[in-house]
Design a protein around this nucleic acid. Sequence first.
DNA 1: CGATACGATATCATCTACCGATATTATAAT
DNA 2: ATTATAATATCGGTAGATGATATCGTATCG
Lengths: 102, 102
Amino acid sequence: MGGKDRAALTEPMYYVLMSFLHQEMCGIEITEFVERKTDGRVRLGPGTLYTLLGKFQEEKLIEETQTEGRKRTYRLTEKGREAFLEELERLRACLLDGEEEL
Amino acid sequence: MGGKDRAALTEPMYYVLMSFLHQEMCGIEITEFVERKTDGRVRLGPGTLYTLLGKFQEEKLIEETQTEGRKRTYRLTEKGREAFLEELERLRACLLDGEEEL
DNA sequence: CGATACGATATCATCTACCGATATTATAAT
DNA sequence: ATTATAATATCGGTAGATGATATCGTATCG
């Protein structure tokens, strides 16, 4: 019924999208958000992060809002928000599958 | 406090370990279990599956119980059960992080 | 017995993602 | 002008996913 299925997101992808839910963000801010949000459990190296930002922009999950010197700021698109919500559903399904087997 | 953190499991790894919670399993049975359990959402190719079984055995998350012709059957070790439970916790944490941001 | 079909597992090449180390770039401070 | 700083970009190495194909062991058929 809904939109066609997207491929599952990896954990870094998931947290990067999550970081945009309430504010525009630049790369460094995302790194800090993710580390804080997960109590240090998830840490994004710059390789992972900037590669992802480039890919997300290509796929139109995020879009650039301003450039200030070298600093680039992005916000989530509607498509990006949907991708995040789909991933939440996927996580719920995975968790439920596991709990059922206990 | 608890054991040291293991690296996060991928979705295929998670479902393969899950398949062993109640019965010993051989490769083909695992493929079928995972596909059925997830209503077709997750599908393991033979490459993924047998590579994982080999790795899990090396890491002593599973152990072989019998061989019948070419068919090899495995069961979960205690270490394997712990790895699965840890992954459940990780999923819970991810999901909670996401829901908090909504 | 040999050939063949079948069930199950193993291997391979290719692709995608992660990641840290290092380089680059733009601005600000001295 | 040089240096420092903040932020982003690139690169190489490694791990995992995957389907196509190959292999192996057994049973069945002639």
